[in-house]
Design a protein around this nucleic acid. Structure first.
Lengths: 141, 141
DNA sequence: TCCAAAGTTTACGTTTACGTAAAGGTGAAA
DNA sequence: TTTCACCTTTACGTAAACGTAAACTTTGGA
């Protein structure tokens, strides 16, 4: 790494990113092919900007939330066109945003419910375990 | 529906469930094939119990949270063996439960971040829209 | 100068979660 | 009795998200 790079590092290599996010280079190239990131080139080698890195991060976050790559790309595209959009475009975007918001609210509910269920299972499991241990104890006593 | 059914309804037909959850019968049969539900039969026709219905609900909830069918089945199986498990089994279950808990916590963080991002996009979008409308206004004035 | 590491493209393979059609059984109503 | 709606099994098809292998170029070191 050059000194210049240490100071004003703005670009990344493909394996660098793959290590940072623990994904394969294949995955990164696939995301590019799907239009999620747009690295420039140095010769034939891909150069990733900070924007690419952020988008990669957002894509992975979206995945954890069950967003498809197409959905994530849609959001990226909408974001990109926000500044140049006309009235119809902008209203469309606002609509989609409220849809996403509703999805997220649903997910929050889901998570809360699953968490309480996990609590029940854990209690049940802990009690069963306690019983087993008690039996052991009384045997050894 | 018979009177008896109205009072102590404990079973469901496949299309009844498919309508309630807005999924196809194919999906329900597929979940059975994957071991997620175990309806009894009346002749060759499937009869679903309340337990089946609940599991179907939980399966769909899991899907919304990005759980694979295999993962959901694993949780079901763990739950079923909780009452008869030995010490190792129970500790295994407790471990997996804490893993799931960690995943859910991660998801909560993800959701919060995406929500704040949606807020930013929405603001940006709203401002752009206001500008468009202001231009219209000044033109018509 | 020559090799190994890392990059590239192309393309076929794989898993998950169903869709979709084909071909047939079943019971109630007309 | 025939028709219709609903049920069944079997089985091939499909979209998404990569995995994996082949074959090739480029480049920084020994």
């Amino acid at each position: 790494m050059t000194l210049q790079n240490k100071i004003t590092k703005k670009t990344y290599g493909i394996s660098e990113l793959s290590k940072e996010f623990d994904i394969t280079t294949r995955t990164i190239r696939f995301y590019e092919q799907q239009g999620l990131i747009s690295p420039t080139r140095n010769g034939q080698t891909r150069i990733y900007s900070e924007k690419d890195r952020v988008r990669l991060m957002l894509t992975l976050r979206g995945k954890r939330l069950g967003f498809s790559l197409a959905e994530t790309k849609e959001l990226f595209d909408l974001y990109d066109t926000t500044l140049e959009g006309d009235e119809k475009q902008l209203n469309l975007i606002l609509g989609i945003l409220s849809e996403k918001r509703a999805e997220l609210d649903q997910q929050l509910q889901d998570i809360q419910r699953v968490q309480t269920e996990l609590n029940l299972v854990q209690d049940r499991c802990q009690k069963a375990l306690d019983e087993v241990l008690n039996k052991k104890k009384s045997k050894s006593a």
